[in-house]
Write a protein that binds this DNA or RNA. Sequence first.
DNA 1: ACAAACTTCGTACGGGTTACGGAGTAAGTC
DNA 2: GACTTACTCCGTAACCCGTACGAAGTTTGT
Lengths: 253, 253
Amino acid sequence: MTEINGSDPARTIATLWGTRQLPRRGPKHTLTSEQVIAAAVEIADGDQDLATLSMRRVAESLGVGTMSLYTYIASREELLEAMLDKVYGEAVRELGEPGEHDWVDGLREVARVNWDLCLRHPWLLQVFTGRPPLGPRSIAKYERELAVVDGLGLTDVEMDSVLTLVHDHVQGTARRRIEADRAIRRTGMDDEQWWAKAGPALAEVFDPERFPLAARVGQSAGEAHNGAHNPEHAYAFGLARLLEGVAALVKTR
Amino acid sequence: MTEINGSDPARTIATLWGTRQLPRRGPKHTLTSEQVIAAAVEIADGDQDLATLSMRRVAESLGVGTMSLYTYIASREELLEAMLDKVYGEAVRELGEPGEHDWVDGLREVARVNWDLCLRHPWLLQVFTGRPPLGPRSIAKYERELAVVDGLGLTDVEMDSVLTLVHDHVQGTARRRIEADRAIRRTGMDDEQWWAKAGPALAEVFDPERFPLAARVGQSAGEAHNGAHNPEHAYAFGLARLLEGVAALVKTR
DNA sequence: ACAAACTTCGTACGGGTTACGGAGTAAGTC
DNA sequence: GACTTACTCCGTAACCCGTACGAAGTTTGT
């Protein structure tokens, strides 16, 4: 009666909510799943990347054999989902109790908290979330965020859609910001050094007459912020537009 | 005088623009970089995933040894960037000549074309883009998209920001859509089967009184579209809001 | 004719996840 | 108190990955 696939939603849910009862028999456990998850988060935060988070390294940091981890966690994938849920707890705490602001400021706060969370744990956006995360803190976060758009006359589906819209914007801009940082670390070149190499090479093949707008706007954007794109600016600009769009909808109710 | 890091922007640009002159001496080449790139795209399209795209498989599909690929391409990373640029060509073709629509319909078209592109090549969103892609088709796409928001009285930086906003929205919703599909493939369970397992387990730990909004909205959203989230709906809803927000900005000019 | 430059590709290194099974340990049972 | 059973821990190994290195063979320039 083995699971065909490693992913057993019921087992994962039990792990996330802490209701998986550990076996009574056998040697004492030297660890808990919480310890494994915490160690993994620490490593991922340090690396700012998931790619280099291996089971071996997690085990080493805890002073156990690699395979011992699988006593506490079903698979690497389940571990990642648990890590996600753990750090979502930070967002829940930061958001605190609802009801102080109007909804616009509320959404601004939601955006800000999610942005900060992404930058604090850049690996977060690399976690595969093909299925909705059903951990306690993921749900608590959703609950708290829904409170911001409750009572505006929106339908349930619209409430969900508005939050999705804000999340996508934050994640999109945060992703750009994070990947830019990663590019610097991985290549060992900052933007200036990189352009010093890419610029001349591009100049040899790029014809400004064929791409007049790209040439002009690319240059302007590059000068305004230093670097090709400025994610912080994209974040603020986009959020402003987006809130105006939502306001227009709310006004019709 | 070796490159410290595998990534040499100048070499990559030459590969992308086809200006890298192949050596005259030595045996005849059995391949071209275009062939390697095309083979890789074909495999990635088939898998709908980058994770399983290995150099070995690309080589096998071309009937050559793995290491022979490195004659035509500097690294896997450069290959990915070239693949990106190749499929961006499709978007350029689909967008055609500018100037038929007003800017709102223009942006709608930009969004639609990018959405279609993402769904046709789901691996696209997995390509690391820490640095701006500087291939000929990437730039052509940017040029064509800029034309949509040119002449509205926006500053250069604003024009760029508006496009970024649209792109982020499309990519965010497309990503959700793609990851949902991948979840089905990877677990071998469709949403219904998955909920049949997750639902009861969640019911055991989830207290609707603690999370009233999440319970209500989650159910409504799940019933409205079937499945927890409906990316198509999120796409259309978000785009509508976002265009209204941009319209408000344009009106001030 | 010969040297130089080049392509091809087998091998190997260091990395990854995780299946399997043996050894040791603690709880339940009689 | 002894035995069975269920469990943890973890070494080993199977099977992936990207790519550095260098030997062998091929073509060009001189």
